[in-house]
């Protein structure tokens, strides 16, 4: 059965269904038993599965990641949740030095099937230490899978895939996606790693949006339609492994590629995508490419600077327009602030 769910509900449903199916799945993390339920994604799980399988942790990201790794080596399938990706930085040693390498450096003798769920993104002045999107750091590391679904359907299918996979998976959720609604089948299904999705068909330019930026790219695509430009929008869904074929097919058709990241550009996901496209299209000089992402500074807290820090549908549309017109013309659609950003209010 197909229903409309929010992205947060889709994550919760995937977790419940997998925990019901497989008793080795456990959920841990700061606040997973909290009445706020991490934006609803873990609400009620402890009541349903008990405090042994769903538990709040001490403030010990490094140690608890190691605990999850050890439990995974013993056959459990831990989902370790972080309300902000910034806190995952405290666990880098365990993730990069151990989880990512255990199978390889022990000659295939062990697996570490952990899922590290972390939330990224802007909202209510989160500022420099509470809004970072560091997916690129993890894309750099062999042995880690990195997924960043943008629709409720993919959130559910990717999470189920991540839980069942025998490798460590970084599962990345943008806070502004949690309230997005979409069709989600009620039964269990997986979305495979390494398969991008074409979200809108077009012929003039390819827009690749990462995580929440797919939403802004789709808005930009509609703006561009109003001025006669047909944009194709692609969501890579999975950043490592990356489905470069789908992007290449589109770029070969449109001749223009704009990658828009929910992160910084330097050494980022956008760099990787452009580099792979460049490697595969050498000798095709007419292809144009560009990328957008955070301004190359820490995220400012004050709203007027924060608005300049992030790409949005208007800046994406305007950049795409200029690319299509070989920088000979410029145009910017009227600025409308994204409703999910306006609606999201603190104190949190």
């Amino acid at each position: 059965m197909d229903r409309i769910l929010t992205y947060a509900e889709a994550i919760r449903e995937a977790t419940v269904q997998e925990m019901t199916r497989d008793p080795s799945v456990i959920v841990l993390g700061l606040g997973v038993d909290d009445f706020k339920g991490l934006y609803g994604t873990t609400r009620g799980l402890q009541d349903e599965f008990g405090p042994e399988r769903v538990f709040d942790t001490p403030l010990s990201e490094d140690g608890m990641t190691g605990v999850a790794i050890g439990a995974a080596m013993a056959g459990l399938r831990p989902i370790h949740v972080h309300i902000r990706m910034d806190f995952v930085l405290l666990a880098m040693n365990q993730i990069v030095n151990m989880a990512a390498k255990a199978r390889y450096m022990y000659g295939g003798a062990v697996s570490v099937p952990i899922v590290v769920r972390s939330i990224i993104g802007r909202s209510w002045g989160q500022g420099p230490q509470h809004s970072q999107a560091l997916h690129a750091l993890f894309m750099h590391i062999p042995g880690l899978r990195v997924v960043a679904p943008s629709t409720p359907y993919d959130a559910k299918g990717c999470l189920i895939m991540s839980i069942r996979d025998d490798n460590p998976v970084m599962f990345i959720e943008h806070r502004m996606l949690h309230s997005q609604r979409g069709h989600v089948p009620s039964d269990l299904y997986t979305v495979p790693f390494g398969k991008a999705r074409v979200l809108a068909k077009g012929s003039d330019i390819t827009l690749v949006g990462i995580s929440y930026m797919t939403v802004e790219c789709l808005r930009a695509q509609r703006y561009l339609g109003e001025v006669g430009i047909s944009a194709e929008v692609i969501d890579p869904v999975c950043l490592s492994p990356l489905d470069i074929e789908t992007i290449l097919t589109s770029v070969k058709k449109t001749g223009r590629l704009l990658v828009v990241d929910s992160g910084w550009t330097v050494c980022g996901a956008s760099s990787e995508i452009l580099a792979q496209v460049a490697e595969h299209t050498q000798g095709t000089p007419q292809i144009r490419w560009q990328r957008m992402g955070f301004a190359p500074v820490p995220c400012p807290t004050t709203k007027n600077l924060e608005n300049l820090f992030y790409p949005n549908a208007q800046t994406v549309a305007s950049t795409a327009f200029a690319m299509v017109h070989d920088n000979q013309r410029s145009w910017t659609p009227v600025h409308k602030e994204a409703p999910e950003i306006v609606e999201f209010k603190g104190p949190f």
């Binding site: 002045g125 500022g127 420099p128 230490q129 509470h130 820490p298 400012p300 807290t301 004050t302 709203k303 007027n304 600077l305």
Partner: peptide, 16 residues
């Protein structure tokens, strides 16, 4: 208030 006259020029906010 996020103002330029703040102790961190508005870039930090209450937490910084």
């Amino acid at each position: 208030y996020g103002k330029g006259t703040g102790c961190a020029k508005g870039k930090g906010g209450s937490m910084h």
